[in-house]
């Protein structure tokens, strides 16, 4: 039933797929490093997502007027420079709303400046889309990053520290190893597999139609 509903409204859902099922983070690993290493609490996840969302959306919008006639190298340098300029207000706001996050996130906050989504996707994907679709895609990308970061931060904080948003839940059994980068890789792998499983399920042709096709052949 869910699959039929999805397939009947495929055009709408395909637009929203960037949020989770076809998110470039889960399908190609773009902008994955901060999630793997530093995203081990909900607070860090929120701080990281705020900075990333602001930088991604504003960089792509502000770099749109850069003429396509310029050589690719120059366009990339200009895009990343705009991202680095926007890092100043974005990180300032992040520190204002989540005090201490600059030191907690270390080099992974400035690393967002050279995120593959900004460097590679901006000139070859985002700038080739109509403005409205581009803004929607950017918001979905940022939203997808936020959802993934919060889920990952929630699981790692709960199991690794026995806390939730910094509040101790008095859980006696914790697994501190889940806070380390290798657990980040493993959990991201599981999340990517889950997203792919759901995507394959939703896009599979129903059994009756498959039988019909086989009989026809």
């Amino acid at each position: 039933m869910i699959r039929r509903f999805y397939q009947n409204h495929r055009a709408l859902f395909q637009k929203l797929d960037t949020l989770w099922l076809r998110s470039p983070i889960l399908t190609r690993g773009l902008a994955i490093a901060p999630l793997i290493v530093v995203c081990n609490s909900v607070l860090r996840a929120c701080a990281l997502s705020l900075c990333y969302g602001l930088m991604l959306v504003l960089t792509v919008i502000f770099s749109r007027p850069i003429p396509q006639t310029l050589p690719y190298t120059i366009r990339v340098i200009l895009n990343v420079s705009i991202a680095a300029i926007l890092f100043i207000p974005a990180s300032y706001l992040t520190e204002l709303w989540f005090p201490g996050s600059l030191s907690r996130l270390g080099l992974y906050l400035p690393l967002l400046t050279v995120s593959s989504l900004i460097v590679q996707h901006t000139p070859i994907r985002f700038h080739r889309m109509p403005f409205r679709s581009m803004v929607l895609d950017l918001i979905l990308n940022a939203g997808g990053f936020f959802l993934l970061a919060v889920c990952l931060g929630f699981v790692r904080e709960l199991l690794g520290r026995g806390q939730l948003y910094g509040t101790d839940l008095s859980i006696s059994f914790t697994v501190p190893a889940i806070l380390l980068p290798f657990s980040g890789f493993l959990l991201m792998g599981m999340a990517a597999a889950l997203a792919k499983k759901v995507y394959l399920f939703l896009n599979r042709t129903p059994r009756s139609k498959r039988k019909e096709k086989r009989n026809h052949e």
Partner: peptide
């Protein structure tokens, strides 16, 4: 199929990362 490609590569990288850790 759901693990094939990128998801299993991430898990494989995770195990290698564990060894380096």
């Amino acid at each position: 199929p759901s693990f094939r490609g990128f998801p299993i590569m991430l898990i494989y990288t995770g195990f290698l990362s564990l060894a380096f850790y």
